[in-house]
Amino acid sequence: MIKQTLLFGNRAYLSLKLNQLVIELPDIPEKPKQPITRPIEDIGILIIESHQVTLTSALLSSLLENNVAVITCDSRHMPNGLLLPLSGNTIQSERYLAQISCSLPLKKQLWQQTVMSKIANQGEVLKIWNNKESKCMAVWSRNVKSGDPDNLEGRAAAFYWRNIFIENPHFTRQRDADDCNALFNYGYAILRAVIARALVGSGLLPTLGIHHHNRYNAYCLADDIMEPYRPYVDNVVMEIIREHGTDISLTPAIKKKLLTIPTIDVKIGKLTRPLMIAATMTSASLSKCFNGESRKILYPEIICKQQG
Rank of each mutant, 00 (worst) to 15 (best):
D176P: 00
H170N: 14
I195R: 07
R175T: 08
C180Y: 12
H77A: 04
P149I: 07
P274A: 04
N214L: 07
H77E: 08
K296V: 05
I91Q: 15
I303W: 02
M276P: 01
L46R: 08
K17H: 15
S202V: 09
L59F: 08
V266Y: 05
L298M: 13
L183E: 02
K118P: 09
P32C: 04
I277A: 06
S50K: 07
S57Q: 08
I36S: 11
R76H: 12
I210E: 06
F290S: 00
P231V: 03
I195Y: 07
W129T: 02
H212G: 12
V115N: 10
I268C: 01
P274G: 02
K256A: 15
I195E: 06
K17S: 15
L64E: 03
L60I: 04
L199K: 11
Q113D: 06
Y96S: 05
S285M: 04
S294P: 01
L258H: 08
L110M: 09
I195H: 05
S117Y: 05
T251Q: 10
L152T: 02
D27L: 12
Y229C: 13
A12D: 10
T90W: 12
K3P: 01
K135W: 03
I100D: 05
M1D: 11
Q52W: 00
I36Y: 14
N217W: 11
I190Y: 09
I302Y: 01
R273L: 15
P206W: 09
Y186N: 04
Y216D: 12
I225K: 05
K17M: 11
P32M: 06
I119D: 00
S57T: 15
Y13Q: 11
P274H: 04
W111S: 11
G187Q: 10
T172I: 14
I164F: 05
I128V: 10
S61C: 05
L7E: 09
L18E: 14
E167W: 03
I36L: 15
K288H: 05
K267N: 11
Q99N: 13
L259W: 07
L14F: 04
G269V: 00
F165A: 00
S294Q: 01
N185E: 10
L271F: 06
K31H: 08
S287R: 12
G292W: 06
I241Y: 04
C180G: 00
R175C: 04
